[in-house]
Amino acid sequence: MKSMLTTLCYIEKEDRYLMLHRISKKNDVNKEKWIGVGGHFEKDESPEDCLLREVKEETGLALTSYHFRGIVTFILKDKGSELTEYMCLYTADDYEGTLCDCNEGVLKWVDKNEIFNLNLWEGDRIFLRLLQENHPFFSLKLVYEGNCLKEAVLDGKRI
């Protein structure tokens, strides 16, 4: 069983984010969505271990400067089941290496002012806005029923 602890990173370069268009995996909850890069913790990993491994696996890049920006609690209620995932959210502003192809989709540098025109999860729009506003470290709880965002709570207050 996969860990319910994950990382997600938005790598920044020249006022752009590296985005992953999730089009390659079958049975993908993120199918057709644009997201950052990251994934599930493996045994004995810290958030930073997971972040560095996942970014390297998905992009070929080795992060040299990154920042822990917040924790996002996802609650997904779907067809009588409920799943909770805790995601450590990062941004990165320096790296080494050469961008490679990703087996989970297509990687593309997207201007930050174009991000909100992409097919994003509704909750991702909230935390991407917080990142762009340089909001201090935050806790964001997102409750989904199927693909529909039903509740968002930022630092303990409904928004």
Score class of each variant (00 low, 15 high):
residue 36 G to A: 06
residue 132 Q to G: 09
residue 114 E to Q: 14
residue 90 Y to E: 00
residue 110 V to M: 08
residue 111 D to T: 07
residue 27 N to K: 13
residue 126 I to N: 03
residue 75 I to Y: 06
residue 91 T to G: 02
residue 69 R to I: 04
residue 43 K to S: 11
residue 125 R to L: 10
residue 82 E to L: 09
residue 23 I to F: 06
residue 134 N to M: 07
residue 33 K to C: 07
residue 24 S to V: 05
residue 49 D to T: 06
residue 45 E to T: 03
residue 111 D to S: 15
residue 64 T to A: 02
residue 81 S to C: 12
residue 100 C to S: 15
residue 49 D to P: 02
residue 60 G to H: 04
residue 58 E to H: 08
residue 93 D to E: 15
residue 45 E to C: 05
residue 124 D to F: 05
residue 107 L to C: 06
residue 119 N to H: 15
residue 34 W to C: 03
residue 110 V to C: 09
residue 37 V to W: 01
residue 51 L to F: 08
residue 116 F to H: 15
residue 91 T to W: 01
residue 117 N to C: 08
residue 108 K to V: 05
residue 130 L to D: 06
residue 6 T to P: 02
residue 123 G to I: 05
residue 9 C to H: 00
residue 108 K to D: 06
residue 24 S to Y: 12
residue 47 P to N: 10
residue 65 S to R: 13
residue 115 I to S: 00
residue 138 F to S: 00
residue 104 E to A: 10
residue 91 T to F: 01
residue 117 N to H: 11
residue 132 Q to K: 11
residue 12 E to C: 07
residue 49 D to M: 03
residue 10 Y to I: 01
residue 64 T to K: 03
residue 138 F to N: 03
residue 51 L to C: 05
residue 95 Y to I: 02
residue 65 S to K: 13
residue 6 T to L: 12
residue 119 N to P: 01
residue 10 Y to F: 15
residue 58 E to W: 03
residue 72 V to L: 12
residue 111 D to V: 05
residue 102 C to E: 04
residue 17 Y to K: 04
residue 82 E to C: 11
residue 8 L to V: 14
residue 63 L to Q: 04
residue 6 T to Q: 14
residue 137 F to D: 06
residue 59 T to E: 08
residue 77 K to V: 13
residue 74 F to W: 10
residue 22 R to Y: 06
residue 125 R to V: 13
residue 91 T to M: 00
residue 101 D to I: 11
residue 60 G to C: 04
residue 53 R to F: 09
residue 52 L to K: 03
residue 37 V to M: 01
residue 55 V to I: 14
residue 17 Y to T: 01
residue 12 E to K: 04
residue 92 A to S: 09
residue 96 E to K: 13
residue 62 A to M: 15
residue 103 N to F: 15
residue 105 G to Y: 00
residue 94 D to H: 11
residue 111 D to C: 10
residue 101 D to V: 12
residue 55 V to S: 00
residue 32 E to M: 13
residue 96 E to M: 09
